[in-house]
Structure formats: C-alpha cells, structure tokens
Design a protein around this nucleic acid. Sequence first.
RNA 1: GCCGAAGUGGCGGAACUGGUAGACGCGCUGGACUCAAAAUCCAGUGGUGGCAACAUCGUGUGGGUUCGAGUCCCACCUUCGGUACCA
Length: 937
Amino acid sequence: MDYSPRDIEQKWKQYWEDNEVYKVSNHSDKPKYYVLDMFPYPSGSGLHVGHPLGYIASDICSRYKRLKGFNVLHPMGYDAFGLPAEQYAIESGVHPAVSTFENIARFRKQMDNLGFSYDWSREVMTCDPAYYKWTQWIFLQLFQHYYDKSAEKAMPVAGLVAHFEQEGNSGIKAASNQERIFSAAEWANMTPREKDEVLMNYRLAYRKVTYVNWCEALGTVLANDEVKDGVSERGGYPVERKPMMQWSLRITAYAERLLNDLQELEWSESMKAMQSNWIGRSEGAQLFFGLEGSDEKIEIYTTRADTIFGATFMVLAPEHDLVAKLTTPKQRAAVDEYLSYVKTRSERDRVSDVKAVTGAFIGAYAINPFNGAKIPIWISEYVLKDYGTGAIMAVPADDERDRRFAEKFGLEIIEIIDKSMHPGATIEDKVGVMINSDFLNGMEVLDAIEAIMQRIEDMGIGKRQVNYKLRDAIYSRQRYWGEPFPIVYDPDGVAHAMATNDLPLELPELDDFKPASGGVSPLGRATDWVNLAHGWKRETDTMPGFAGSSWYFLRYMDARNEKEFASQQALNYWRDVDLYIGGTEHAVGHLMYSRFWHKFLYDKELAPTKEPFRKLINQGMIQGVIESVYYHKEERRFYSAELAKAMDTNGFAEIPVHIDFISEYGSDESYLSAEGIRQFKNWRQEYQSTEFVFSPGSDKFYTKSEVGKMSKSKFNVINPDDVVAQYGADCFRMYEMFLGPIEQAKPWDIKGISGVSNFLRRFWGLFFDDKGNFNVSEASPAKEEWKILHQAIKKVSEDIERFSFNTCVSAFMVAANELKKLNCNKREVLEPLVLLIAPFAPFVAEELWNRLGHEGSIHANGQYPAFNPEYLKEDSVQYPIAINGKTRGTVDFPADARKEDLEKAAVELEMVKKWADGKTIRKVIVVPGRMINIVIG
RNA sequence: GCCGAAGUGGCGGAACUGGUAGACGCGCUGGACUCAAAAUCCAGUGGUGGCAACAUCGUGUGGGUUCGAGUCCCACCUUCGGUACCA
C-alpha cells in the first residue's frame, strides 16, 4: 500500500478526538511537565506558515515527554480581545464577538489539521465572560493591595487604612506616589474624595492623570510597547502625548524583583538583556539644590554626583511644576514661546530628531550646595518629566547631551575629569582623575562618587537613590472590545470595587462601536449600563490587551473552575510552565506583565512559584517574500524590475502583487508571465489599461522580491492548509523543523519539502514489500542494524533535549537511508523507530504502530525506546592521521589499543614515513578514540 | 550610539566539550527505467591544478594562542533583532 497521508491523517484525527487521547488529568502519580505556546490573536487572515513553527516544536516536546512517562499539560487558547476586531466592527458593523468567533473557528480548524496534541477541554478565550470574570477578579485584588517595601510584598489596602487611622502615613514604606506626609488627625478630617485620592497613590491598580500615548485615529490610549517609532503598532497611526485620567498598574513596585529574578530563568541572554534594559535600573543620588532668592528647592537625580563641581546649569523638564513659579517676568515670553513649541511636538518628533537642541532660560538661578556657585536654570525637552525627578544638574564637561546644550547656548564648561591616562575612553566611561573639584581633586571617579555620596548624606542635602526606566503600565483603553472594569463611582467620584459575587461584569450590547465624543470609550453610549441608581456610574474604559494574557497560563491548569481562577490543588500540581515557546515580539510587554501578575499572586499565596515561565524558547519568524511591480508615477506605466532599477527608482511606486500570480515565486528571477499580468489586471481593475514595459525581446515581466513579514496587506500569506493538502501534516511538520534552528528567522521556501516527502515515503516503504503488502520480519537484527537504531535513538533524544529539531530530522533520514540499504524490515528495529518518530510525525507513527499489531494510540500507550550504548561499541576505530595538524589519511586500529601502542604503530605507517622522509618526527599526539597527529620538522 | 544574535558550498543548514569542515536535504551533472515526460532508483557534486593517485587553497577580514582553531583570545567589517535624549 502506498503512503497516503490524506487517508491516515483523516482517520487518526477522528480517532484522537473520539477517544480524547490528549485529555490530561490534574491527578497523576507521574511527574508533571507543562509545555505552553504563546496563544495567538485570532486575526482575520488566519494562520500562516509562520505561526505553527513554535506550535510544532512545542508539540514535539509534549509528545516526547509523554512517551517518556510525564503527565504533560499542553493547552491552547486565544488572546481574543483586541483592536482589529473592533476596527472591523466599525467598518462593517459586524459585532466583534461574531467576527472573533468566526476567526477562532478557522484557527481551530487549521490547527487540527496539523495534528497537535492540545487538550482542547482546557481551551481559554480571553473574551469569554467565564474567563474574564477572573481577569476582573485579579484586577480587583490589585486595586485592593499596595506594595509594602518593608515586607517586600503586596499587602491589603485595609491594613494601610488602619495604619493611617492610627499614625497617618509616616512609618509606612510603600511603593507610592504620595508625596505629602499627613497625620492621623489629618486623615480623619479628609473627605471621602480626598481619602480616595490618597489611597490611589498607594494601590497597585490606581487612577491618576498621566501623560499618555493618545492615538486619535484609534480613539484610544496605547501602552508604550504598543507604540513603535511614534506611530501605533497596529495600524501605524500617529500618536501624541496627552494628559488624561487613566487607570495604571504599579509594576514599578516590582522592578527590583523583576530584575533580580531574571537570573534564575533559563531564557536566552538576549531576552534577559531586553528585559533588564527595559527595567533600566540605575544607582545614583537624589539631591536638593537651593534657589537664589527663594525658599523653594529643586530636587534632581544624578548617577554622577562626583561631577557636581562641573555643574554649570540646571535643566527642568518643560512640564516640571516649578517652571511656572520660577520663571522671571523678563523671561516669561521666551519661556511661554518655548512651552507652546513643546506642545506641538509629538512623541514622534521627539524621537525622530534626537540631535536637535532646544531650550529656554527661565531667569532663575540655583545655588550649588558645595561651592555656592550661581547656576542658571533652563528648560528643555531632553529632560523627561517621568524619569527621576524631572530635573537634572547639567555637567557639560562630562555628558554628551549637556555639552551639546552648553555649546548651543554658550554656557560655561568646566573640565572636572582628567582622562589623559585613559586614551580612547569616552565621555561616558567612569574613569579618570578628578580636577577642579575641591575635596575630590586627585580621586579616581569611582572613589569620588562614593566620597561625595557620603558627604551629601552627612550634609543632609540628599540621599542614595535607585531609579528605574520602567514606568507604571497604563491600563485604560477607550475601546469596546476589552474587559470592563469592575469599578463603580459614587456621586463624589470615588472609585469602589464591585462585589466579587457580581462578577463577571459583562460588556453591554452595542450596535455602534465608534468611540463616544471627548475620548470616551464606546461604552459611554450604553447609558443604561453606565448609569446606576442614586447617581452611581460605571467605569466606561476597558482593560488593555495584556490584561487577559497576563495570567492565562494559570487558567489552563483548571480552566473550567467556576469558584476560583484555578484551584490550589491544580496550581500546586502544575506549579509553573516548564517550557514556553513564542516569538521575541513579546519580549518586553507580555512577558514583563505576566511576571508581574504572577509575582503579585505569589505574594498573595495564590501562585506557588516566583516566576511563571522557567524555560523560554523564542522561535524565529518565518518571513515571506513580498512581490511587487514598479509603477512609474509620472508615466503611469509599469516597468520590468531590471529596467526600473537602471532608472531612478525614486520615480517609481512599488505596487504589491498577489504571490499567486507570480512565476518562479521566491527566486531572484520571479516574474509575471502574460497570464500573470492578466490575473493582476483582473485583480486590480484600476490598472486594466496600464501599459507594461518589458526589456526588448523578453516575454518575462520581472518583479521585485524582498524578504519581509507575511501579511494580508502584502498578499504573500501562505496557508499551511494548502501545504498539508499536498504533502500531509507529518511532512509539513517535519519540513518546518528541518528548515533550520528553531530560534533563527528564515524566509519561507517550499523548494526543499520534496526531500522530506521522499523521506517519509522511504520510511513507510521499510514496512512494505515490493507488492505493497505490510511485511515486517520477526528475525533478530544484525549487529549493524542494531547500531543504526541506537545511533538514531541517541541522536534524536539528545537533540530534542537541546531543542535542535532540524538535526533530529536529519538523523531520521540517515537511519532510513541506511536501513533501506540493508533492506532491513525487522520488527525489533522498526518498532522502536516508529516510537522515536512519533513526536515528529504523529499520524504515520500511529498508522504503523497499529499495523504492527498494537491496540490503541501510540501517543497514549507507547514508551520511548531506551538507548543502549552496547550497540554502538566497535572492535576497531578509524583514526584520522594528521601530519602537522593536517589530516592526510585514515587507519583502523583496535578500539582498545593503548596510547603507547598507537604512538608506536603510527610512526611505522607507510604514509607517515613518506611525509617524514628527510625530516625528524618531533612529537606524536594521540587522543585515544579520536585522532593521531604527528609533528614533523 | 548602546545591548544582543549571527556571518560556513549555488541554496537551507551540520560539526554539542578545540580533534577527518561541509552531515542531512534542495539544486545541479551523468546514468537506469520510459515511445517520451513526470515520478522513482543509482552514481557524482567546495574552488583550483591533474587521466589519476594526489597536491593546493578554503568557515566575513586582519592578527594571536595551540601539536591542531568554524570552535578560544584581540582588533575590525557586514547583516539582523532590541533600544534610544534615562541624567
């Protein structure tokens, strides 16, 4: 019988479903193993060939661990809230839930087609009220907790209130933005509204006015990582800074732990580096400067307190509170002009011209606390309101930006570090000897930092301070398709948590999804839903995309629990994710927020581990090839690529072409044939009568090919279904693995797939005779056959353990080639081989296992074959013989030959004598079992 | 700029702790089968020279360590990813 993937894959897919082969229990004596994929956003374009790369790898690991005797949790779900569905709803009027469920159904079908071993009984969707009930619940926990720096964990706000009632807010070490110290009496006198505002400064989920990334086109606020190069990541719309009342999460409270605990994770160095850069910890000093003719003080933050004698001016962020107070009447006009300039500057402008130096003098002077020097105060947009204290002492001699600023505005520069002993050291390097710096003179920089820090603390003008780049995460979105906040406001505007019993708070029905006016979410239109009795109102914002994805890995452990987000039994059994596979694009956002939520739940003793994801593998992107034609903008004609490139390409627009029309797709020679041009014109009616300019004598219209993202808008999406239809899922799976290391990005290229397809046929053929009858012999294998088997077992299991799946596929090919050569059809060799290949090609393995006479599924009942090194032992070893390190030939020696004997024998070899002719043998190096090198000179 | 990853045949890639560079696959060349083609099977395939044995060069570039370097060290170049006035 011929290998027919279509039939066997259909058959076993059905069998797996009918028999719930992949259903996992939370009660087992077996050791646990949790393999997780980053769940997808169910986009309208469906799965392309890039998505499954990680899913295949994780599926191989899951199946492998299962055969190795582990109880494996391997779930899948959908990150189903999100902007695209809502944008689509605005355009088409289709409810986001409807399009989302359609997309999910499509994704599910595509995934089933690939033979994954997911336990679908645990499927989660973040937009399902049964799921987001618990997202809301965790949010309320965050709302009702603050971070206590003494206890180094989250504590209930109720305890904080009790403390305020007893002693005010002194004596509390908490992560907060409460600046004012108040007494118990003052607390007692506060109005509910005032108390609410104070508590908001402590809560882990809190509301405050923040400068946010406002995206007018999307009508919503975006998180920092949803903005790329000043435009929205989804849609590419402009983003501007705008102050708005927003919910935020106090992730900064966990900055230190998020940084320190990275150490214990088995993540790539680059991934850890990205996280640690994002957290951006720095050690420095918080320090007060007095002002001339004023009692006010300016608080600054610096990591280079040693350079204070070189501080010749100060710079405040334009938004700094003191700017209005300190500006002198004389400078008022100049300052106002500068402030209005800053307002016109979007985040995008600031990012794009980093080198431009702008600023204004406000007329006031600060006093250097060490030498009484009068230093002018400026404002400039290069100082950020949100970092440190929003104010710096500028040291033009030792800071690149300060120097540029001083040069532009003609400010004094005092050299304070002699770097002559360190040629090549840059301005940023902390090396050299202090000069012009009073009591610091002659000290090395690092000593000087320590010395002045001590002095600052002794003088009581400042203290050591650790700062982070990490910002609190803005948590409000003015959108419909997200989790509603379980928060109600009383008539005073005080926020109250909804009762847990009333969760989930479901989204109201709407038929218009456009934002309401004034930056209010579409929920503002649902007046019946928003307005409650006695003047109470609901929150109209919804939660951001990362809300549901920050804890979904815990929900899988006990996905249908209606009483808790997951039972303690389930949490304590599965604990954490042993292997997490996903793309790097989530390096900072999702992984950081998940770690934060997990740590919070750990503090509450609701999660059993400090970290959620022990081992992380980042699969590389599979890119597509974008094909486009050159359109001459003035002549309004298309030019063949080789012609266009010879001309000034600026005059051309590149019009993307659907890859289905292209001949030789993906090669350098890709072109449109006459038929392709016809299809193109049909597809883009507006070019119906546009002329195509060819090279003289050529009938090929060449297109431009470039490697890039697979996307619907580039018309280059390759659907795995098409590949599976032609070659089968087993072949598709093995081919994707065969392409190269899982972590590397690579362009999709179908050319090599025939090699894998041939291999599967050959593998299948081992079990059948010439007439196509199943024919497996019970004879005992020869030594050589055992060796082939055990070489494969060794190689494949070692390589799975180190996630080197491409070399596993090679190992299978080698084994099949060699067994074929020996015409081996012996059960004792073939049966273990079927088990070995089962994680990679689950359908073929299942069919052959069945034909070998086994009942039930190989994936449920099989046992991974054990490696026995006895079979690899050889009587003799082939030694490479090198002369002066260059291999000149090989000679067989007995495997147990002693080193001394080998040395003697080697010198006697004909070939060695030939090379040594006329010269002396100086040294013989023997590495037993490996090689022999003879040094001649 | 800074941080990280990577540069190996025509192509995807292998070589795990320094020990026969190019496994495996694609492609290409030749052959078998066929009326023919496809499919399949067999053989060959880094460059140069040679009928051949063999020689010689060869892992981004330049230097170093070593009996021996794709692998370790130093300097540089290129590509990709992240980040960007962070005081």
